[in-house]
Design a binder for these strands. Structure first.
Length: 351
DNA sequence: AATGCGGGGGC
DNA sequence: GCCCCAGCATT
């Protein structure tokens, strides 16, 4: 029986994915893909990635751009801290590393938005650096192959998986080209195996290069491993979003605080109930408004809570003058082109 | 060590 | 509905 990594890399070269747009030895493109792919499926990223690269062809372009432009292109992708860190990271790479990612993962992890696994992926794909990744795919492959019980999100299990991932890396090779090629095929192989063979449900073990000594397969525990995340009931929340339009049909948007949900995005002002909407809008923005009938409420689901949103249309009575720079009037087309959360996109499309 | 942070694909 | 996705930062 050949070594784990030998079987994996051989399989990857024959059956793995080779035509994803970020499979290039270019630190900028690799990094961008890795950030977009954090907790986000390949099919989703395939939609955003080319648009982003078209607007920001180089890392220097991204570093020089306004954050708002970055958020606009990230709109709908979620986890918006990633976009803010992406922008800050581009500037840090220009400032500290002359515009190129260093090949050492220990240096790469110091950059904003890049943790241990992402740093290893960037180093491995860009330079062939010998470093282990540990994403959702790898956790699934390794817990099954080694028969590791316990939710992989728990620190002790995760540490165990990191140790195993390191131990399974291809042996160092004095031939630099052989070594880098092996690292790339190994790293890509783990991801490809998790995505196409060792899937969460109904893994196709018959075509898996690791099945002969896979502990889960040998004991028929493919469905039990990896151990599921403990379930928790998610809370229900509700909000009223004030859809205020001026005489030109523009919408009042407010920039959200940099941290918390939808951090840094433009969104509608929120109030707790429709009853207090007019009063709050007067107090907070100095705007006199008149309410219209509320639009149908709808539910927006997050990973950690469900939010019932009531869109509350209103029109302006007096002046449209704004006293804060965190608020602004947007035409509907300008709003759709800005960094806004998905529910607001939905509301604008409904009016 | 646990929690917050989006949105959607796929079943 | 439910599970989970090329995780990280913060507490």
């Amino acid at each position: 029986m050949s070594h784990f990594s030998t079987r994996l890399t051989t399989w990857q070269r024959e059956h793995g994915r080779h035509h994803l747009p970020w499979q290039v030895a270019d630190g900028y493109r690799v990094w961008l893909s890795e950030i977009m792919l954090q907790q986000t499926q390949v099919t989703t990223v395939l939609d955003y990635y080319p648009r982003f690269l078209e607007r920001f062809p180089t890392l220097a372009d991204l570093a020089a751009a306004p954050l708002d432009d970055v958020l606009a292109l990230w709109s709908g992708l979620g986890y918006y801290t990633r976009a803010r860190n992406l922008h800050a990271c581009a500037q840090a790479v220009v400032r500290d590393f002359g515009g190129q990612f260093p090949p050492d993962p220990a240096l790469i992890t110091t950059l904003p938005g890049i943790g241990r696994s992402t740093a290893a992926a960037i180093a491995a794909f860009s330079y062939g650096t010998r470093a282990a990744i540990l994403d959702g795919n790898v956790k699934r492959v390794l817990t099954r192959w080694a028969g590791i019980e316990g939710f992989p999100g728990v620190k002790a299990i995760e540490n165990q998986l990191w140790t195993l991932a390191e131990a399974l890396l291809p042996e160092p090779n004095s031939d630099k080209d052989i070594a880098t090629t092996a690292i790339k095929a190994h790293t890509q192989g783990l991801m490809d195996l998790g995505a196409t063979i060792c899937t969460p449900k109904n893994p196709t073990c018959l075509t898996c290069p690791l099945s002969s000594d896979c502990q889960a397969r040998m004991s028929g525990r493919q469905a039990e491993l990896p151990t599921k995340k403990p379930k928790k009931t998610i809370p229900e929340k509700s909000t009223v979003m004030v859809l205020l339009r001026n005489t030109q049909g523009e919408i009042l948007l407010e920039r959200r605080p940099p941290t918390g949900i939808w951090g840094g995005l433009w969104s509608l002002p929120e109030v707790s109930t429709t009853l207090s909407a007019a009063e709050i809008m007067d107090q907070r923005f100095g705007l006199a408004i008149e309410l219209e009938p509320a639009l149908p409420e709808f539910i927006h689901v997050f990973t950690h809570y469900r939010l019932t949103i009531t869109p509350q249309p209103a029109y302006l009575i007096g002046s449209s003058a704004l006293r804060e720079d965190q608020t602004a009037w947007f035409s509907t087309s300008a709003a759709l082109a800005a960094g806004i959360p998905t529910p607001l996109r939905k509301i604008i499309h409904s009016i």
